[in-house]
Design a binder for these strands. Structure first.
Lengths: 111, 111
DNA sequence: GTCTATATGTAGACTGCCTATAGGTAGACA
DNA sequence: TGTCTACCTATAGGCAGTCTACATATAGAC
């Protein structure tokens, strides 16, 4: 998977995996991998800054938890984040439709 | 349309509009607009450098033509470009499937 | 002589994903 | 005791492609 292709879709992916349940960063990476059948291998250097950015904006909220002696920062969707996720979903639908439409083979303008 | 979303898909779009017939830069921009129902407004500062890059790589070839007193650089797909377009199409199909899959609402891993 | 549409092109900013690196805990195993 | 692996968070700097803004030029309408 071309890394550049993810540009501008990362936020949607992160919000989406957090929709069902709060998760910490490491678990988010694993969830993305699992949901994509292994296709999505997002590095920590992408995820952690992105999560902080989304929290700064107000789409996510986080809190520290200690589980088995390990510290975790668990993220959850805020109301604003849930709303944003809806927007991201329809934006994706439109984007996929537009790009898919242009890419569809055999189109001619006037003959 | 979020500009960042186009990252990594521009090449596919350009190759695709050139599949049917050779076009010059300005006409490519109009073709993208037409095919997308007006959704795709790609600025010249994006298209011209991208076309040159694709020519440098070997996916496109160009030649100057004068039509109605105006100079045009007309681009056409090379064989390598046609092959690349196939690759871009299947890459897009996989990408759309993966992102769409992760974004689909109501997924839970284990309950 | 001015405006608009047509047409190509570059410089530099911006942005966000990546690589590489850093730090640390827990548990298995020798 | 030491080492290895899995787990877990985080930052600095690189990189590449898209964008904004600008420069240049012809044709035709008015």
């Amino acid at each position: 998977m071309n890394p550049d292709a993810l540009r501008g879709h990362m936020d949607a992916l992160l919000l989406s995996v957090l929709e069902g349940e709060p998760l910490h960063g490491y678990a988010i990476i694993e969830a993305l991998q699992a949901r994509s059948g292994g296709a999505l291998n997002v590095p920590t250097g992408t995820v952690y800054p992105a999560l902080r950015r989304l929290e700064r904006i107000g789409y996510l909220a986080s809190e520290w938890a200690t589980v088995g002696g390990r510290k975790r920062r668990t993220y959850r969707l805020t109301d604003a984040g849930r709303k944003q996720l809806e927007g991201e979903r329809s934006a994706w639908a439109e984007f996929a439709s537009v790009i898919g439409g242009v890419l569809r083979p055999g189109i001619r303008q006037s003959g």
